[in-house]
Simulated scan of single mutants.
Amino acid sequence: MTPKIVHYPQLFLRLAISVAMLSAVADRFGFWGKNSAWENFENYTKQLTFFLPESLSVFSAYSATFLEILFPFMLILGFKTKIASYGIGFLLLIFALSMTVSLGVKAPLDYSVWIGSAAAFLLAGQEKYSFSIDELLAKNN
């Protein structure tokens, strides 16, 4: 059983990761205003994935965006939390490695991409997920 002291920090971690991921997507779509860090996210993605063919780079940009929306909503709801956590952990790990190779070591550190990846993997390692659909489904079985 998960100690009670872990319930709220675990929920906070789920929400913090989710909000950070969704904020990046909102910025990409211009919801944070005109001075978006991702003004042309296809070009930014091409820069990060310079080692891929252009068509695959564009595909990866849209695929990553889809997953960056799906996984955070799964975390917020606590539905398939372990899968969502691993998904975010690997997405951010790939992003951090791509940033490091293409932009240098400073960029992923400035955007805390390594920390986000580590936090997602830490969350994935939990046995139970408090305040979640997963918890409700486990109680009904």
Rank of each mutant, 00 (worst) to 15 (best):
A26D: 04
N43I: 13
Y62V: 06
R14K: 12
F51G: 07
K46P: 00
P9Y: 02
L15I: 15
L52P: 01
V25D: 00
F50S: 11
Q10H: 03
S57R: 11
R28E: 08
V25G: 00
N43S: 13
F59N: 08
F51H: 12
A37S: 12
A61G: 04
F41L: 02
M21Q: 07
S18T: 08
A16C: 11
V25T: 04
Y44P: 02
I5R: 14
L22F: 05
F12H: 12
T49H: 11
W32M: 14
I17V: 12
V25R: 01
F12D: 04
W32L: 15
V25M: 03
L15A: 07
R14C: 06
K46I: 06
I17M: 01
L13R: 05
F51Y: 14
K46N: 13
L13M: 12
A24L: 07
E39Q: 14
V25Y: 02
T65A: 03
A16I: 10
Y44R: 12
I5K: 13
I17W: 00
Q10E: 07
T45I: 06
Y62I: 10
T65W: 02
L48D: 00
R28T: 15
K46A: 09
K34P: 10
S55D: 10
Y62E: 02
V58Q: 07
V6M: 10
A37P: 09
N35T: 12
H7A: 08
F51S: 07
K34G: 14
W32S: 13
A26P: 05
E54V: 15
S57N: 09
A24P: 01
L13D: 01
A24K: 03
G30L: 09
A61Q: 11
A37L: 14
H7S: 06
E54M: 09
Q10K: 04
Q47R: 13
Y44I: 14
Q10L: 09
S63E: 06
S63M: 14
A26K: 03
F59A: 15
A20R: 06
N40Y: 07
F59H: 09
N43R: 15
I17F: 02
A26N: 06
L52E: 00
L15G: 07
A20I: 14
V19R: 00
A64N: 08
G30M: 09
L22T: 03
E54T: 15
A61S: 12
A24D: 08
T45F: 04
L48Q: 03
T49S: 10
L48R: 06
T65M: 06
T49V: 07
G30P: 06
A24N: 13
L48Y: 02
A61C: 11
F12S: 15
Y8N: 10
T45C: 01
I5M: 10
F12N: 10
G33R: 05
A24Q: 08
A16G: 14
Q47V: 10
S57M: 11
L22Y: 02
S36A: 07
R14D: 03
L13P: 01
S36E: 04
V19K: 01
A26H: 00
F31P: 05
W38P: 01
F51A: 10
G30S: 08
A37K: 13
A37D: 09
L22P: 02
